[in-house]
């Protein structure tokens, strides 16, 4: 086994060159280059994390904007609905007022017309009384020859009319 057979001759050379080459590997490659490689990888990881965070934040902002938009949309819808309801109520009230005014007008006209009709029918009744009284006096005069007084004829007619 050369590892053991040659050990006395080669151990110093082996240790010397091992320390030399591994020293080069450790100080030049391990200490000098690996941290830079690692820093690049870390910077990339940091950038990816940062970009992801920014994207997440942008997403959150978009969600916020959408929620805001929805809220404003709902708000303006509510406002429009309120305006609409108010306008409807006002229109209904106005129509009611006009209707009431028209009703009152019509009622007064009807009242006036009724009063006129009453007056006319009263006048007509009076005329009928007068005519009936004249006719009754005439009839009394022709039948009995007695001149009935105007007052008596009138009372008789009134009584007859009242009894219908």
């Amino acid at each position: 086994m050369p590892q053991i057979a040659q050990i006395a001759d080669t151990y110093a050379s082996q240790i010397f060159w091992m320390l030399l080459t591994f020293g080069f590997v450790f100080f030049v490659i391990g200490q000098g280059m690996v941290p830079k490689v690692q820093a690049t990888a870390d910077a990339r990881d940091a950038k990816i994390t940062g970009d992801l965070d920014a994207a997440k934040a942008a997403f959150a902002r978009a969600d916020e904007a959408e929620a805001d938009y929805r809220a404003r949309d709902a708000e303006s819808r509510a406002a429009v609905q309120a305006t609409l309801a108010r306008a409807k109520a006002e229109a209904a009230k106005a129509a009611e007022g006009q209707l009431a005014a028209a009703d009152a007008e019509i009622a007064t006209q009807i009242g006036a017309a009724e009063a006129r009709i009453q007056a006319a029918s009263q006048a007509a009744m009076q005329e009928i009384e007068t005519v009936a009284a004249d006719a009754a006096r005439d009839m009394v005069a022709r039948i009995s020859g007695v001149e009935a007084s105007d007052e008596a004829a009138r009372n008789a007619v009134k009584a007859a009319l009242a009894h219908g």
């Binding site: 001759d9 080669t10 050379s13 010397f16 060159w17 490659i29 490689v37």
Partner: peptide, 23 residues
Amino acid sequence: FNIAFTNSALYMVAAGVVLWIFV
């Protein structure tokens, strides 16, 4: 101490150089 540059040392240097080129 004998520090002859042996075939073993050659492979140590080769490993170091290949690693250096790799990095």
